[in-house]
Each structure stands twice: as C-alpha cells, then as structure tokens.
Design a binder for these strands. Sequence first.
DNA 1: ACCACCATCTGGCTCGGTCG
DNA 2: CGACCGAGCCAGATGGTGGT
Length: 364
Amino acid sequence: MSLPGPDHGNPDHAHMLANKWMNATKLAEMVKTQGLVYKKGKFSAIEEQQLRTAIEAFKAGRGLTNDQLQDIIFQKNEKGKDNAFWSEITSALALRPIIAVYHHVRRAFHPKKQQGKWMPEEDAVLKQAVADLGQQWEKVSEIVGRMSSDCRDRYRNHIANREVRVTGVWTKEEEEELTAIVTEMTIQQGKDFDNDVFWGKVSDRMGNRRGRQQCRIKWTDSLSKTVKNEGQKPRWSAQDAYILVHKVDSMNVRDDTEIDWKTLPDSDWNLWSAHSLQRRWLTMKRGIKGYEDMTHQEIMDILRVKKAHLPPASAARKRKVTSVANIDEPADPEPGDAGPSGTQEGASDGQDRDADGSTDDSDA
DNA sequence: ACCACCATCTGGCTCGGTCG
DNA sequence: CGACCGAGCCAGATGGTGGT
C-alpha cells in the first residue's frame, strides 16, 4: 500500500493483523507456528501520525461528521453496520494487531479524557462509590465523571491503603527490606530483576507502606544499581553519555519515540537500567537549546558532536552498535575528563569541543 | 461451537516537580 | 546539575456477549 515500510514481511500476516481479532494466546501461537511478527508497546509519534491520517481519510471518504465518527468509535449506533473502520485504520499501521489499535483509539478519543488534578471532593465521591459498588470501574466512572481507568488509578495509587502509606525519603531499613524482597523474588528464582518483578506483590509484602511505583522506581533507579555494582553507587560519567549517544545513533530511528529502551542496556555496561537511560537521554536532549522545535536528526547531529565526538552528518557511521565492545571507548577513563581525542575526524571546521561540553551552547 | 466485537481488569511507564 | 519522588498516562491480558 502507501507505506514503503522497510519490511512488512508477509502480506498475509499484515492482512491477518488488520482483520482478525486475536487474543494474546492466539497471537503467541501465531508467532510460534507462523513466524508472525507484530509490534507491542507504546505507539510511536510516527504511528500516531499514521493513525490520525487514516482516521481523517476514513472520515472524509464517507463524509462523516465528528459526531458520527465518535459514534463509530464508541459504537452507539446499531451493531455490525460499518465496521470496516477498525480494519481500515489498522492497516495503516502494518505491524499492529487490530485489538491494540482498537484500545488505543478508544482511549485517545474518549469524551471523558480530561486531564488534571483530582479535587478532594472527587476523591471523596470516588471513595464512596468504591465502597458502594466495589471495584466496578465502569459504574464508578459514571458517578465520578472520569474515565474508568483514571478512577482505578486514583483509587489504587492514592485512596487504597492511605492510612498506612508512607511518603518521602526511604529509611535504611526500608531499602534493605525492599532489596531483600526483590532479590528473593527474582535472583533466587532464577529471574531477571530488571524485568520480572510484580510490583503489586512487592508492595503487598512491604505491608503497603510503599506503593507499586514507589517500590519500582526506588529499585530500578537506585537500589538495583547498587546491587549490580557491589554496594557502590555508580556515577553517570562522560563515558556513559558517550556510549549512550553511540547506541542511540546506531539505532537509526526517525524519532526517539521509536526507540525500544529495553534493548539498550547490555551486559558489558549493565549498571544502567532502561529507565535510567531513557531519563538520561531526556536530560541530554533538554540540554540543547531549542530542542522542542528540532527533529530527531538535528538533535542527534548536535549530540554526536557534543557527547560522542563524531562528525555531525553520521554519513560515515553505518555500523551497527550492538554491544559496548563495539564502541571505541574514550581513551582515558580519567575522572573529570573523558575526552576520546582519538575518534576525532579531521573535520574541516573541526572546532575542538571539550569533553563534557560544560561551557558551550547549552541555554541560559 | 465459533467468530466478531467489546468491557473490564492487571500491570508497567512517562515525565514534571522539587530539593540539596 | 543530578537524585529522588509523586501523580497521571498507557498498553496488555482476560473474559465475556450476541449473532450465526
């Protein structure tokens, strides 16, 4: 079709993804038996754009009003009428199963999709509604006037266990307790403590004094690194920045929302979790003046020079960097200055930047 | 029994704010 | 700055229901 996608593999598969409502089991089976490939996880900015375009095209093609479109998405009209809709917009995406697009679009177009803070009155209404109805979030949603998932989140994260919940700095004892629980649930069972933790369970075992994401963030951002580094807390260095830029560069994506951060950590450089690397990336990006209005390519061009000491156009670098071993590390691991003087090409205008770009074009 | 379609429940992630 | 936390946002899995 219109997409010149790099490889949308088997056309049968594309058709299947756009037309068959497969559940997780079936999907997994297809992956196994037929080599089906599909995409999971957050929709990238590019996918969002493709979806918007496809929806607009559908709407224009049938001369629909916004209300009619809304009706199709939420199916307030009579059943089974015009349900080419989901298949049609899904096929604009090539690698997404129809069920994923369905959920995504329904969330995105939801009339109660309002953002914003919860007022104390809303909390009270929510609490009462749950007391009356139990955790029937669709019914609760009617009463509270927010999306059911938002009601659930609010309840789960802020109403439930409010009496025992602790916030603020973690004590030494809490940290040790969390470390013990996580290592017991993962390492001692041969699982991976970066990926295989059920945080709800962990929170339970902490007596709910800390919530799911409190535990998770504490672990992934802080404690896990200490565990990996034999009790020492590692510091982010210029070399780390250098490696990160190289890795992102080698992914050749059009936009950083297309990056699957899970693939970035590797065994030679495993102090940093996917999450912390993503945060680092954001921080670096924001260090660039005017980054909001720049494309991914432009941002990469700047970072390549500033952090990775590569020529800006990337033309030379096509090699795939899959592990740290493939990266020419900055020559001297001296703290304070990690400038890899060796990698510098004889770039014509080659202005020599210092290693951590402390004084250059970052904004005021 | 099967299929298209849908609601709801479970689990994970992003990102801005704040503080030292 | 970077470390850390809070609050909200998002996707996946599960388990229907009504029509054939």
